[in-house]
Amino acid sequence: MTVDDKSKVPEILSNLKELESYQVAVGILSKSGGEMLMIANVHEFGCSIPVTDKMRGFLAYNYGVHLKRDTKVIKIPERSFVRSSYDNKSSEVYDKGEDLLTEVVNGNMSARAFYELLGQTCADTIREYMVNEVNSPANSSLTIANKGSSNPLVDSGQLAAAITYEIRGR
């Protein structure tokens, strides 16, 4: 008697093992450069900038802004776009990942392709959330006048363009 195993268990286990060999990093990655990482960090967590006499002169000369003498700090408010997109959109990404995982288990997609599609989905989700849903706290009137837009996280588009993903081996 010959037993023909059609369960595909060995193939499924192989596909799952391949999944374990990769991971995906998503966000503003180090390849974006130090300045872009700093900008992302300031927006994500906020920042307090100590006011100096040089800064007072710069703002007065270039923008006609005269800070009060007792102003010691300029606060850039937190406008989370990475953490808040996760908090608000993770179930949608999870559903997409679950669908993709089924394709890997069934042998219809490689583990690498799974992580490519999942990484792109996450990056797109963060970018869309940042552009379309982060609108407070509002920009100051000076910032709006200088950049010509009231969207707090969009000026030139560089920050949104820097949101990416990277597949890494484990």
Rank of each mutant, 00 (worst) to 15 (best):
E44G: 13
G34S: 14
D4G: 09
I167L: 07
L159K: 11
L153N: 06
N151I: 03
C122M: 12
E18H: 01
E98I: 07
S80F: 04
S14I: 02
G46Q: 10
K147F: 08
E35A: 15
R170Y: 05
T102M: 08
D87C: 02
A161H: 04
I12C: 02
N146R: 10
V42K: 08
A111P: 02
N106I: 04
V65M: 13
F58L: 14
G97W: 00
I126E: 03
G97P: 00
S85G: 12
N88E: 13
N41K: 13
V26H: 02
K75E: 05
R170D: 09
A161G: 10
T52R: 09
S80C: 07
T143W: 03
D5V: 11
V9L: 12
H66Q: 11
S156C: 07
V82I: 15
K75I: 08
Y115L: 14
N88V: 02
Y129A: 10
L100Q: 04
G97Q: 01
K89N: 14
K54A: 15
V154D: 09
L37P: 00
A162M: 07
S14A: 11
E11L: 03
L153K: 02
S110G: 09
V65Q: 11
S136A: 11
G148A: 13
T121I: 03
K89V: 11
G169A: 12
M55V: 14
G64W: 03
M130I: 10
L101D: 06
V134N: 01
S21K: 07
P77E: 03
E166Q: 13
T2N: 15
R170E: 10
D155F: 04
S80A: 14
Y63A: 09
G107F: 01
C47Q: 09
S7G: 13
T52V: 15
L29N: 08
V9Q: 09
N108A: 10
K54S: 15
M1K: 15
Y22V: 06
R69G: 06
A162P: 05
P10Y: 01
S85Y: 04
S32E: 12
